[in-house]
Design a protein around this nucleic acid. Structure first.
Lengths: 334, 334
DNA sequence: TCCCATTATGACAACGATTACCTACCTATG
DNA sequence: CATAGGTAGGTAATCGTTGTCATAATGGGA
């Protein structure tokens, strides 16, 4: 294929040195207007393009930030990445993404790979708690969603326990006392915290905890028909559902519509497309991916060009977005 | 910060040459087991990690593929990227993404940036038609969604016209003759093709085209209340809607639920979450992001390691996924 | 015994940019 | 007139790895 045009090629053409061309490229003052113009013309003529890799090697950093998420196809993380990318772009920095799919090995590989690449910084939604392999201050890093253990770092997250608590309180306020909780994998810290919030709300209201109402460790893509059927068949059945995340909520909405049980109140931890539009519409705890992304990338840039700050935790405030399913046993017709 | 461990550091520790260490690193046969073991031990002890940038400079390629999409936050592209990433990952290759947000300048910057970075390959969903700036065969590239003009390249896309045609035919088969079309920006090629398909289906069925039923160049995030109201108020109102893409469909579903008009049939070009679950559920033309992604990355790797094939067009087959709203004026209760 | 082939290893250049340092040259000032 | 200081530009080292080519040691066959 066509050979690359290098600085030296431009230098020869412009009858000057490689260094002067480099100066022009980097907008160094120390070049006379005349020379600058001549060099620039030649650059255009030859179609010169910097070699980013060579530059990165010399300068010691690759102008890219590495983002690690469980699943880029998940709209939550996709939006988060979009926000990160938008801000990074303003700084002339690219974004390289990797999905762990919940595999710890993969997560480690990704992070190691970013280090090997000398990325400018990292944003990580960790599954794995143990980040002790990362040397403190080795690389500007911001964690999202949950903090790693054994490593001091900036974290941007929502207050999961509080969010779950106000969600359940919302239901209690609307007269519900039999509230079932549908959660994904409890090994994931935020999910565990949400369960705590659920319990706390019930306890505060003096409602006795009923293990029969807790459906834990569900898979997001699992068929919940049987689970839900079971839930609705217990002696004193629930009048409201609380779900730990969007995928589960969607799954449940789907099933409920199928079995024509739209009389159950539902509050979802995440918001999701159409949650507001469907009948009955779903009350959610607003959990903005974009805001988390925005704060995370902002913090990351502070670390990158501001030097080292001491690690902080940033809690994104949560609130209930009430939407019609708060009230008890309202039969809504579509 | 801590100095990086280099090949030469390992070489010194293992009392051998830098080249031998490099051989061990790259699993070169030409190293005695004894030496290999000694070197490997030192690598571990010192915590050696390759410098990917230096390697890329030397080898001439960065083991990363560049993906350009209009909007990574769009679930369609997010899923596509997830699929691409999964396959790339198997090859030990990373994914760097950029969103154009419909800006041609940004699109060009992204592509140029990837070239400057010597990426292994590119997957591009182009907005801009003119890719003449790319030298033929300069870089393994696969286009998705639409072909660029002035550049011969592999393209993976769906047959937009055909998809729209079968969508409308589905409605016609179910007795509809007044079918409104809601479309996004017609300057985008696929959208224009879908309009062609809509027209073709009506023509084939001998139904006269009515401009009053065409609502074109809508913005995805626009409030469609007024538009829909207008649509339903014309003298001979539509009994069915056909939409050009998921965002618009979602928007419409939202409005229809709000105004309690669930008697209108709706067929959507894209599938979307909950399309199957809501009442009435929405018939869609299946347009799998994942499949497009999978085919695109597969083709890309064929180009990368297979050498140069002549550019081909890959059309992903489309089909109607019928879901309850085909029949005319069925009032569905939730 | 000698020579060629094979194996294990090493020295050195190259990839394309930036950085540290050096050299002219010109001007201003005592 | 001599010297200091500023300006424009150049030379060579460097970043960490891999490719080319050379070399030493070993073994087998003639």
């Amino acid at each position: 294929m066509n050979k690359r045009v290098r600085l030296i090629d431009v230098a020869e053409a412009a009858q000057t040195s490689i260094k002067t061309v480099s100066r022009v490229l980097n907008n160094d003052e120390r070049v006379s207007d005349e020379t600058r113009e001549r060099v620039q013309k030649k650059m255009n003529d030859l179609g010169y393009q910097v070699d980013i890799i060579a530059r990165s090697l010399r300068t010691g950093v690759d102008r890219v930030i590495g983002v690690v998420v469980p699943k880029i196809g998940d709209p939550f993380f996709a939006e988060l990445v979009e926000e990160v990318e938008a801000v990074a772009n303003e700084h002339g920095i690219g974004v390289i993404v990797g999905s762990t799919h919940g595999e710890l090995v993969r997560e480690n590989e990704l992070v190691q790979g970013f280090i090997q690449r000398r990325v400018t910084g990292m944003i990580i939604a960790p599954q794995d708690a143990d980040y002790s392999f990362l040397k403190q201050n080795q690389m500007p890093t911001v964690f999202i969603d949950r903090a790693p253990e054994k490593y001091k770092a900036d974290v941007v997250r929502v207050d999961d326990e509080y969010g779950a608590k106000i969600a359940v309180e919302h239901l209690i306020k609307n007269g519900h006392t039999r509230i079932a909780y549908f959660a994904d994998n409890l090994k994931v810290k935020p999910t565990a915290l949400r369960l705590d919030g659920y319990k706390a709300a019930l306890k505060d209201a003096g409602i006795k905890l009923d293990e029969e109402l807790q459906f834990l460790n569900l898979e997001a893509d699992m068929n919940l028909d049987v689970t839900i059927e079971k839930a609705l068949k217990i002696k004193n059945p629930p009048t409201a559902f609380f779900t730990s995340k969007a995928e589960i909520s969607i799954n449940i909405v789907s099933t409920m519509h199928k079995i024509k049980r739209t009389d159950i109140a539902l509050v979802s931890f995440d918001d999701f497309t159409l949650a507001a539009s469907i009948q009955p519409s779903i009350t959610v705890i607003d959990h903005s991916a974009r805001e988390i992304g925005r704060v995370a990338i902002k913090k990351l840039f502070e670390k990158i060009d501001g030097g080292d700050f001491k690690p902080q935790e940033h809690i994104i405030p949560l609130k209930v977005v009430p939407r019609g399913t708060g009230e008890i046993k309202v039969k809504v017709s579509a």
